[in-house]
Design a protein around this nucleic acid. Structure first.
Lengths: 145, 145
DNA sequence: TTAAATGCAAAGATTTTGCCAAATT
DNA sequence: AATTTGGCAAAATCTTTGCATTTAA
């Protein structure tokens, strides 16, 4: 059986995608709303959010900072990396040595002064691997594409 | 003149720090609130947020996903890295080749299946470098420590 | 006595949802 | 006709803020 949903390329969806492809500014949902509204004055913010969700599930766009909506805090102030479970959001420290001065060769690029970096690995934690997958959520157990 | 504020190690602040040091679970503000409330039942969520802010400014803890509160979207679905301006939040693509299979040597660590990574560089964009710094915000123009 | 911190509640900001009408297949 | 999408507004979630009061130097 083919559980895949067909997706219609509605005008709203197409224009959101076009605007996003057109810019390199990595806009927020609200900025996209403003951009799109110039062409579709009656579109609603809810539609923008829904379409951004659909487009990123399809791999047409990327949702950045997709990991978590809520901030997390780390009692260890030393620079280190993390692995985030894309299924439940759980984070653990990554046993991976920090690449010191990784940013040095970027410093000055595009006029930016670059002084640091943050690396996050994405994975599935043991609990989520074990747990039976809820119907329709299987894609959460691995990369989408 | 010394514009620096003195900071008191209040019981609330100390206990928040203790709880955060005690765990390796990278809790959210709300989880920290729950943890701390077992020892200080009358503490308020606002106090937790305020203290987490202070502690991370002091470098005692780290605020993860500190970059932006709002999600951003990228019309380029290919894997690539970004530089984020820690001053204004602006993001640009980083001219830095993706390190393919960086996560391979982590796969299996702690029982995690690791299938990807996300790397973000931190810097100051040209506009923010040029702009006069608002009083008290100078720390935003470089690493804190 | 004075600056800083707390508790409480209200306000903000961002994102998600429910519902019904409209559009598409 | 059945299904999906859109618009609108309300709800939900997470975070910040105002203010009167308390605490500590």
């Amino acid at each position: 059986m083919n559980t895949e949903k067909r997706m219609r390329m509605t005008p709203q969806r197409r224009i959101i995608l076009e605007e996003l492809r057109k810019t390199c500014s990595h806009p927020s949902a609200d900025e996209i709303y403003s951009m799109v509204r110039k062409r579709l004055p009656r579109i609603s913010l809810g539609t923008v959010y829904r379409n951004l969700e659909v487009l990123s599930e399809l791999g047409e766009i990327q949702k950045l900072e997709a990991g978590g909506s809520l901030k997390r805090f780390d009692g260890n102030p030393a620079h280190h990396y993390h692995i985030r479970c894309t299924c439940c959001g759980r984070m653990v420290d990554a046993p991976f040595q920090v690449m010191e001065r990784l940013e040095e060769r970027l410093d000055g690029a595009d006029g930016y002064r670059v002084f640091g970096h943050s690396l996050e690995f994405l994975g599935i934690c043991p609990e989520c691997r074990r747990r039976p997958i809820a119907p329709g959520l299987g894609h959460l157990n691995g990369p989408h594409r």
